Amino acid sequence: MERRPCLSRRHALLLPTSAVGVGTLAACGPQEEGSDNPEPLRADDGSVPLDEVPENASTMVNFGGQQPFVLLVRGAGDDLTAYSGYCTHNGCALSQLQDELDCPCHGSKFDADTGEVLAGPATRHLPQIDVVVEDGAVRRVR
């Protein structure tokens, strides 16, 4: 009876992919202090104080519940626009790096002020999310 090798061709072909995956996971450690990728604001009660959202900037907010990440883009005062915090290509949660949003799954990039696609594979801009400012707090409209 012929002996088969310990490593099949199929498994041998998967080795380079596995090595890349392990290297990628190693690069996904905790954020260092002073990182350009700030933690999203938490709004567990469904609202975030408006004064915690900086003017003339964009901020990721975790409103809790299903698909909680929302990008708030604030101008001056109560001027707010909100976008989905999920990639339009495959639905991965985006991370904010200064003026852009990056998709860790496939590399799409979005403008953090407009939600427009900067780099694919995503082809659709981020959809707008309805939010209101009431009593000094930002609430997501469902």
Rank of each mutant, 00 (worst) to 15 (best):
A26S: 02
R42E: 14
L71T: 08
V53P: 10
H11C: 07
E100V: 02
S58K: 15
D78W: 00
L101S: 10
T114P: 14
G91D: 09
C87A: 06
D113C: 03
V48D: 14
D111R: 05
M1G: 09
F63I: 07
R3M: 11
H89R: 04
L50D: 12
V61L: 06
R142S: 12
Q66C: 06
E32V: 13
A112F: 08
L94T: 02
V53W: 15
V53E: 12
D44Y: 05
L41A: 02
V70R: 09
Q31F: 10
T59K: 06
L94P: 02
A137K: 13
D113T: 07
V53M: 13
A57W: 10
G34P: 03
A57G: 06
A76N: 14
D44F: 00
V48Q: 12
P40K: 07
S47N: 09
G23M: 10
S47C: 13
E100P: 00
V20Y: 03
P5I: 07
A122D: 01
D99M: 10
R3G: 10
G29A: 07
M60H: 05
A43T: 14
T114I: 14
A26H: 04
L7Q: 03
G107F: 00
C6G: 00
M60W: 08
R74G: 03
H106S: 03
D78S: 09
P40C: 03
A93S: 08
E33R: 04
A57C: 05
Q31Y: 08
L97C: 15
H11Y: 08
T88H: 13
Y86N: 06
V73W: 04
C105S: 01
